[in-house]
Amino acid sequence: MPSAAEWQVLALAARIAAAAVLLSFLPALLLAWVLARRSFRGKALLQGFIMLPLVMPPVVTGYLLLTFLGRSSFIGRSWFALTGHHLAYSTTACVLAAAVVGFPLLVEAIRLSLLGVDPRLESVSRSLGRGPTFTFIRITLPLALPGLLGGAVLSFTRALGEFGATMIFAGNIEGETRQIPLAVYTLLNLPGSETAVMRLTLLSIALSLSALLFMAWLTARHRQRSGRS
């Protein structure tokens, strides 16, 4: 069984990852829809830009986050003036780092599943007098659901594994920013911690694997249901 300290790390990691997915879901849905359904000048550039966090070294992403959202930056100072909290070196920083790094995975999964939705079904709904919003919510989204869930789980697991950007932008604070990779890293800095490292590694694998199995179960259930209807 996980110890109290290990539970703290796991719970914090799960909270951060869930918040990161929630934060990025709507923007990702919007961008994925634009990329899947619209053609415009500079679309390849926009897509490349969205993919950047996937191909950039996370340390660089962390450095950029610290530079543009840090305490000495304009956004960082405005945020502090508004809320009285700093972004850098906080749980919020962990969430932002995880959200940015997992964003491309989310957008890409949603985009691909939206591409798989037959636009004629949407046309039928529109021709029957339903508005674009109704059509999107009642026709497009349910059809794209497996992709949405897949993207959410992928970015959730990516958030669980986030290290490079987090180390730079959020630092290593016990109970606030020390999620699984940072906890493993901290243990690696202490001599004779091999057993503790291995325990946490196994727990981390268990958590990520559960998320993936959950996605498989959801997808299977969705298939079954849509097969029946």
Binding site: L66, G70, R71, S72, A88, Y89, M167, I168, G171, N172, I173, E174, T177, Y185, T186
Partner: peptide, 20 residues
């Protein structure tokens, strides 16, 4: 108040940048 960073030079950078 403490935030841990990976080595002493990261601490130096964080302070020089005004983040800490």
């Amino acid at each position: 108040y403490a935030v841990g960073l990976d080595d002493v030079r990261s601490v130096l950078r964080a302070v020089a940048q005004g983040e800490a």
